[in-house]
């Protein structure tokens, strides 16, 4: 980290109870190598204790600090100020879209959690379900084993909600399961979990997606929901075809 100092205007979305939303500007001296959440936390600590914002781990394992930064969904704990503004520039900080706002920068993400529960998204799963190396969404051929036993790992999806906020469809279709949920179904696979077909093969499931891939563009955690939804469609069709020919 350098000794460089920048002056940045944080233009922050504010809303309390039934009051009208508005924007409030806080001018901060920051190091460009700090993360956006550091600036937001300092606004709370030194400028305005009424600010409401969510955060927990500060290193992208919990998904709590998702916000829109200059109009783009970001996990603010891993978004360096240097990468989203310039010295003397502005950072417009807003809550995620497509969820009801609780206050200021905090939204109610129960829509996402209901969906994740519906597809029984595992929080911890065998390493073989998602490879650590490479870009592919298919399980790898060679997975390290712990002397014949499978390693377990925490799922990549941190349930941050960025994908639902960025999704152009989620805003108009409230019942749409959304990218994270469909990705969690794909991860398990219809072969392994055939009951999921009923949940995802419907108008508010895989067929609602318009392939905008905004979810994949904003995902901070290597889930690649866009591609997973396309793969899940293939799985659904394969299962239907199998059924037409008298398969299970």
């Amino acid at each position: 980290m350098s000794e460089e100092k920048w002056t940045v205007n944080f233009v922050v979305y504010r809303k309390k109870g039934d009051g009208e939303p508005h924007y409030q500007t806080f001018t901060l001296e920051v190091s460009p190598d700090e993360y956006v959440i550091d600036g937001v936390e300092r606004i709370w600590a030194f400028h305005d204790r009424s600010l409401v914002f969510a955060h927990a781990c500060h290193h992208s394992t919990c998904g709590a600090c998702g916000m829109r930064v200059n109009g783009v969904e970001k996990l603010t704990c891993i978004t360096r100020i240097r990468d989203v503004t310039k010295n003397g520039g502005t950072l417009r900080i807003e809550p995620l879209r497509n969820f009801p706002v609780i206050s200021d920068l905090v939204v109610d993400m129960s829509r996402l959690y209901v969906g994740m529960d519906k597809v029984h998204a595992p929080a911890v799963h065998p390493l073989s379900l998602a490879p650590l190396e490479g870009e592919g969404i298919k399980p790898p051929r060679d997975v390290p084993m712990d002397g014949g036993k499978e390693y377990l790992r925490l799922a990549d999806c941190i349930e941050c909600g960025l994908c639902i906020s960025a999704c152009p469809v989620a805003g108009t279709a409230e019942e749409y399961l959304g990218p994270a949920v469909l990705a969690a179904a794909q991860l398990q696979g219809l072969k392994r979990a055939p009951d999921l077909a009923e949940v995802v093969d419907c108008v508010d499931g895989v067929w609602r997606c318009h392939s905008a891939y905004e979810c994949t563009a904003v995902c901070p955690s290597n889930v690649d929901p866009g591609w997973r939804i396309m793969d899940l469609r293939r799985q659904v069709l394969a299962q239907r075809i199998k059924r037409w020919f008298g398969g299970a």
């Binding site: 309390k16 109870g17 009051g19 204790r49 009424s50 600010l51 409401v52 609780i102 206050s103 200021d104 905090v106």
Partner: peptide, 8 residues
């Protein structure tokens, strides 16, 4: 207490 979400 002071609930900062609804300022109550």
């Amino acid at each position: 207490v002071w609930n900062r979400a609804n300022d109550k």
